[in-house]
């Protein structure tokens, strides 16, 4: 008779907000929210609100009607809807972002495509002189 194999389970303590990884094949339509760090390699259509670091990898897509909320954000993929972070927002060279950026620090690498407003307390570099930070 077949017997169920014992499967080793990883102990997960209460309140242990482990990292979340959504691989390239994953598509989510809906709202993603909660605690912990989130890495998106696939696509999300909907709102995102996380307390930890949000990492949108190169090739990933997040389409949202409202700004993505995160503790901090590093974007290498395509984001529509803007980003609002308590900490730093970083757009890498492969990123394509449409929407407003808000964070304690905002950095945009050369090669990034960005359309929107920047809302941050810092001195804007000369090449962003056309956009007014706050």
């Amino acid at each position: 008779m077949a017997q169920a194999k014992t499967i080793t389970k990883r102990a997960l303590g209460p309140g242990d907000a482990g990292p979340t990884v959504l691989s390239a094949s994953v598509r989510i339509r809906g709202r993603l929210s909660g605690e912990g760090d989130v890495t998106v390699e696939g696509s999300i259509e909907g709102a995102v609100s996380v307390s930890g670091e949000l990492f949108v990898a190169e090739g990933a897509t997040v389409l949202s009607a409202e700004a993505l909320e995160a503790g901090s954000a590093t974007i290498g993929g395509h984001v529509e809807g803007g980003i609002s972070a308590g900490g730093a927002v970083h757009l890498t060279a492969s990123s394509r972002v449409r929407g407003d950026l808000k964070g304690s620090e905002v950095s945009i690498e050369e090669g990034a495509e960005f359309a929107g407003r920047i809302d941050a307390i810092f001195d804007l570099p000369a090449e962003l002189g056309g956009v007014r930070g706050r």
Binding site: A17, G18, V21, L22, S33, S51
Partner: peptide
């Protein structure tokens, strides 16, 4: 793919 303990997905 891991949907971590603190995360909620509605959809």
């Amino acid at each position: 793919t891991v949907i971590g303990a603190g995360i909620t997905i509605e959809g």
